[in-house]
């Protein structure tokens, strides 16, 4: 465990070292490539004056609401498309098509429909999450060996009980990877939306990134990017990884 930490720390220390070397070589103007210490100073000051925390809260709040809505709508729809031919031919085809659409494409539409509002943001996030979640759920349910349902039916399970006690748990590994993918898509779409849409109900990380570019403040741009990466890592390590480990242990899949 300590060895793994040491390796990881060394790796990232080397990356920062390379970065500093590149800055010292003066190949690029410091306006384009700020030094690690400048980025650190920006992060520190933005933490002190509260802008970073505020922007993070605004963004994470949008993300959680949009992602939550995506799951709440996508999961049942995925179960539906997996269960009935007619829903597979309609909703399933729709989801398959829209899944290929990059979520930034929803931004112009969202702006026209909802204007510069919070709803526009959420709309883009939900559209970015929903379709891949439907597809993942559908695939998960279809991949379940039919023997599970038959065994459960033989023991007297039926209808809703079979769904909640057999189909959903059996599809759990697929659902989790679908949710992970949905989370990544939600991030992508929200950042696209925040960069393109300026609304007065709150400045998120995307806005901070956008203004960093406008002000030619590369330390801010890179600082915000780092924060986004950190949040992504933190969520993966604290939310998804433990569930994943549990599933691997139960199913006996994956490597230790």
């Amino acid at each position: 465990m300590i060895a793994r930490w040491a390796v990881a720390s060394l790796f990232f220390a080397c990356l920062i070292g390379l970065w500093q070397l590149a800055v010292n070589a003066h190949i690029w103007s410091p306006l384009l490539l700020p030094s690690p210490s400048n980025v650190f100073i920006y992060l520190w000051s933005s933490l002190e004056d509260g802008t970073m925390l505020e922007a993070t809260l605004v963004t994470v709040r949008r993300l959680l609401i949009g992602y939550g809505m995506g799951i709440l709508i996508g999961l049942p729809l995925g179960l539906l498309t997996a269960s009935f031919r007619w829903s597979q031919d309609t909703i399933g085809v729709l989801a398959l098509g829209l899944q290929t659409l990059p979520s930034v494409c929803w931004v112009p539409l969202a702006l026209l429909w909802f204007g510069q509002t919070e709803a526009a943001m959420l709309f883009v996030v939900v559209m970015g999450t929903l379709w891949s979640l439907i597809i993942a759920t559908d695939t998960g349910v279809r991949t379940i060996p039919p023997i599970y349902s038959r065994a459960a039916r033989s023991m007297g399970s039926s209808g809703f009980h079979t769904w909640t006690h057999v189909i959903l748990p059996a599809a759990l590994p697929f659902l989790l990877s679908g949710m992970k993918q949905g989370w990544a898509f939600a991030w992508r779409s929200l950042m696209a939306a925040e960069i393109y849409v300026t609304i007065l109900t709150g400045f998120g990380l995307g806005h901070l990134l956008h203004y960093g570019r406008e002000l030619n403040a590369m330390d801010q741009v890179i600082g915000v990017m780092l924060v986004i990466v950190m949040i992504g890592l933190a969520v993966d390590k604290t939310l998804f990884a433990p569930v994943e480990r549990f599933l691997h242990r139960r199913w006996g899949t994956g490597r230790q």
Binding site: R150, A151, S154, P169, R250, W251, G252
Partner: peptide, 18 residues
């Protein structure tokens, strides 16, 4: 219909891995 009075045991172990 099926029910707990007549239980079926299958070819491959249809145990639930979860």
């Amino acid at each position: 219909g099926p029910g707990p009075h007549r239980l079926m045991m299958f070819q491959e172990a249809a145990l639930f891995p979860w």
